[in-house]
Design a protein around this nucleic acid. Structure first.
Length: 657
RNA sequence: GGGCGCGUAGCUCAGAUGGACUAGAGCAUCUGCCUUCUAAGCAGAGGGUCGCAGGUUCGAAUCCUGCCGCGCCUACCA
């Protein structure tokens, strides 16, 4: 509703500018005045127009205010400061609409969106870095769905890469295990932990003797080729670890629709189809000389301009440096090539499709599908989408850009524009945290502010371990506070608190800030945390419970908003209403900027304001019945919006805390 | 060398699209507040040359340029 009024105001101002000044503004900045007393919206546009119109900002503002006249839903406009136009909404009308939960009809863009996240190599346990990816991705999916968009969630599985080969090498050569023996190990509760250690040991083993690296190369080749004992073992391992990842993510309420695997991209010959198109459109060129002789390369648009400035050999060298090898001189295609083919499939450009089989059942009944060489006749339609978001860390922005450029090269600019690399920074460990985990640090590392997690070295915090710690910590508190609950109820409450803490922890920081992980921060349930926001909801719920009312339903028709939303105190409370009313606008902002952190900030702000309200107004002992109804309406609306924004972050609220 | 990102309170971070007041939170430190709808809370105090220097602008933490410091990317690895 708040967002709807904002749009109405913007439309009216635009129309006025068009009629009176013949000006078309592409973007109209609308912000909030520093204090609610001054109004709900502030437009600084007069300052901007002052230059083009060669008039004083204040004068322009006066003209605009006089010109736009009366706008439905607004109580009035006024010029403030040196030329701000402040808009006051009709508080009573907006409060009524918000209390009734009115959702204005806003055009929702059609077209399916594909969000890909997690994409953990299936060779070891998931760690905190993967958690950030999955939580960001899942939250973005929830935000899109909250905004009414249709979304498919994919988790790309690189089951034929070196990482998997390394664990295969570990089982075959370090541990000399048979297929049956490994199969027995996969039945262990933490097969992924077993692989975590083995992977680290194998990586170390490579360093001991150069000959060991040849074993790795041979293993990798066997995996890519398929149809042999080594590939079978890899399939066993990768699938078992993948299941573990899905289980881990399920603990955090993260689910997927489809798991495309690299093995199918290879065996269903996606690359051949892509290669033909790329050659035809000359996106790829064959090098018959220079350092990339015998390779198919992609020229990157960016630096060819630089190369033109240079001359002769210098220019040739620069141009060469800017080539991206897609097909190696031995004829094999690299990772980026496969990725290009895969993304052509996503946009329905490849002319090929995966086969599908059901792979994983979620308790709520949802089915997660996986790619296969031969599959079920009836399956959901994946791919062929309008927009894609790839949640991949910032280190991958180079290859991501190569894929986008390839799409442009093929003439699909529109799709390239709807391809978003949802980039985020890594999670690293503080030196203190590393020491706590028992890792030996070099002097150099100990002096850093953070140290990069490394699966290869087995250096990091495993996702399940962290979650276990959080649950144990929450559980201790729940046991103390609610001995009356059953064991099951206490566990579920602790789990929801732990998930709330973890998800909030990952979401409160903006994407491009490195998270220096520390147990103290992550295990905190106080201050700016998920449990703080959950607690505010529980408190609001308690008011209704004690009053014998249903917190989920409230009839606001009898509330006298006009009486309670004016004056000094009314304005203070109105501020709370206004923030609650902004949830949809925040969701929209998160989507527009691919930044879920705004939702976290909003949830915290709302919870904080509510807690303050809670202390200042004792609702159930309020003698004035009309006032009590108004206060109840306030608690109801804040609770409802808080639940909504937390749900968009994947944070459920326990019944009690 | 080139590309991307970061530098704001003791610590961890917000300040999207330049704006109106004293640059804000949380943690930590210190002071108060549990007989009230749960203190996982509330009220308050102290703590800042927004890395440095210029520039653009009516207005810069935010935009531009140059420095300084840190990180990542820059392979016929995936």
């Amino acid at each position: 509703m708040y967002r709807y009024l904002q749009r109405r105001l913007a439309d009216r101002v635009r129309a006025f500018l068009r009629e009176s000044y013949h000006i078309e503004l592409e973007k109209l900045v609308i912000e909030q005045p520093p204090q609610v007393e001054m109004g709900e919206y502030a437009l600084p546009l007069a300052f901007e127009l002052a230059r083009t119109l060669r008039k004083a900002p204040k004068k322009i503002a006066d003209e605009i205010v006089a010109g736009i006249g009366v706008v439905e839903g607004f109580a009035g406009f006024e010029v403030a400061g040196a030329g701000y136009i402040n808009a006051r909404v009709d508080r009573v009308a907006l409060a009524n609409a918000v209390a009734a939960g009115e959702v204005p009809d806003l055009a929702i863009p059609l077209g399916k969106i594909l969000v890909e996240h997690s994409s953990i190599n299936p060779n070891k346990a998931a760690h905190i870095g993967h958690l950030r990816n999955a939580i960001l991705g899942d939250t973005f999916v929830r935000l899109l769905r909250e905004a009414g968009r249709s979304v498919d969630v994919q988790n790309y599985i690189d089951n034929t890469g070196v990482q998997v080969a390394d664990v295969v090498v570990g089982f075959q050569h370090l541990e000399q295990k048979t297929y049956a023996e490994v199969e027995a190990l996969t039945k262990l509760p933490h097969f992924d932990y077993y692989c975590w250690d083995l992977y680290a040991r194998t990586s170390q083993w490579y360093g001991e003797d150069k000959a060991n690296l040849q074993i790795r190369a041979a293993t990798l080749q066997a995996l890519e080729h398929g149809g042999n004992a080594t590939a079978d073992l890899a399939e066993l391992i990768a699938t078992a670890v993948l299941r573990r990842h899905l289980e881990t993510m399920q603990r955090l309420d993260i689910e997927y629709d489809f798991l495309p695997r690299e093995s199918e991209i290879l065996r269903l010959h996606f690359w051949d189809a892509a290669f033909a198109q790329l050659k035809e459109k000359s996106v790829l060129t064959y090098e018959d000389s220079g350092k990339n002789k015998g390779c198919w390369v992609m020229k990157r648009v960016g630096a060819s301009a630089v190369a033109e400035v240079a001359e002769g050999e210098e220019a040739a060298k620069l141009a060469e440096d800017d080539q991206k090898v897609i097909v190696r001189s031995n004829g094999t295609v690299g990772y980026v090539g496969k990725d290009i083919a895969y993304h052509m499939w996503k946009f329905g450009l490849l002319g090929k499709d995966f086969c599908y089989i059901p792979f994983y059942h979620y308790p709520e009944g949802k089915q997660c599908w996986i790619s296969a060489e031969a599959g079920e006749a009836v399956h959901p339609h994946f791919g062929d989408v309008a927009e894609i978001y790839n949640v991949i860390d910032a280190r991958q922005s180079d290859p991501q850009n190569t894929v986008i450029e390839a799409l442009r090269g093929l003439g699909h600019d529109e799709m390239a524009d709807r391809y978003t690399h949802f980039s985020y920074e890594m999670v690293a460990l503080t030196p203190g945290c590393a020491a706590e985990l028992g890792y030996q640090l070099s002097e150099e590392d100990a002096a850093r502010s953070y140290i990069e997690v490394s699966g290869r070295k087995g250096f990091g915090v495993k996702a399940d371990d962290l979650l276990d710690k959080l649950i144990a910590s929450a559980r201790a508190e729940v046991d103390k506070r609610h001995p009356e609950l059953s064991d099951e109820e206490r566990h579920e409450t602790a789990r929801q608190i732990a998930v709330g803490a973890l998800r909030y922890f990952m979401l409160k920081v903006t994407k491009n800030s490195v998270i220096a992980f520390d147990f103290n921060d992550a295990l905190s349930f106080e201050g700016e945390t998920g449990p703080y926001a959950q607690y505010a909801v529980v408190r609001a719920g308690n008011i209704f419970r004690k009053a014998g009312l249903d917190a989920g339903h409230f009839d606001p028709s009898g509330v006298d908003f006009a009486r309670f939303l004016q004056g000094e105190e009314g304005t203070g409370l109105w501020e709370l209403w206004l923030v609650a009313a902004q949830t949809s606008a925040i969701v929209e902002q998160c989507i527009a900027t691919s930044e879920p952190a705004y939702a976290a900030k909003h949830a915290f702000k709302l919870a904080q304001m509510f807690n303050s309200f809670y202390h200042g107004h004792h609702i159930l002992t309020e003698a004035d019945e009309a006032r009590k109804q108004f206060l109840l309406a306030t608690a109801y609306v804040v609770r409802r919006e808080l639940v909504r924004v937390l749900a968009a972050m994947g944070i459920a609220v326990p019944a009690v805390m």
